[in-house]
């Protein structure tokens, strides 16, 4: 079976640095980006099964990234991570098709659980 692929976009390098090894331990193939431009370039080439993206970023922000994902990869699932106090934008993200949102700071277990659920759904889409 092909490995599930995960793309992480957050302009704070710490997020990708911490999540990558943990998700790899769970058996995913993980790529990390810290600017939306390079993440969008990568999106043009491939659809990941699961995307994890921050909302507030320079350039194309998380909401823009989400819209592009939904256009190009309707079968992928998107998990949005937000700083606290931005619940309003999290709600907007859900309306625009995000699968789940998690507020920063979060326990690693939370994101592992969210990715696991998102993976199952993404699988169902592709079947």
């Amino acid at each position: 079976m092909e490995k599930t692929t995960v793309c992480i976009l957050d302009d704070e390098p710490i997020v990708g640095d911490r999540l990558k090894p943990e998700l790899e331990d769970d058996g995913y193939r993980v790529e990390v980006f810290t600017d939306s431009a390079s993440a969008l370039d990568r999106l043009d080439q491939t659809c990941f099964d699961v995307f994890i993206t921050d909302l507030k970023m320079e350039g194309v922000d998380g909401m823009g990234f989400l819209e592009r994902i939904k256009e190009k990869c309707p079968g992928s699932e998107v998990i949005v991570i937000t700083g606290y106090g931005t619940l309003e934008s999290a709600r907007e993200a859900l309306i625009k098709g995000a699968y789940d949102f998690i507020t920063k700071p979060f326990r690693i277990g939370e994101i592992r659980a969210a990715v696991k659920k998102a993976k199952k759904r993404a699988r169902r889409h592709s079947e």
Binding site: I14, V15, G83, K104
Partner: peptide, 9 residues
């Protein structure tokens, strides 16, 4: 170490 937090936090 169980949490991921950034400098904004």
């Amino acid at each position: 170490g169980d949490f991921v937090f950034d400098r904004k936090y």
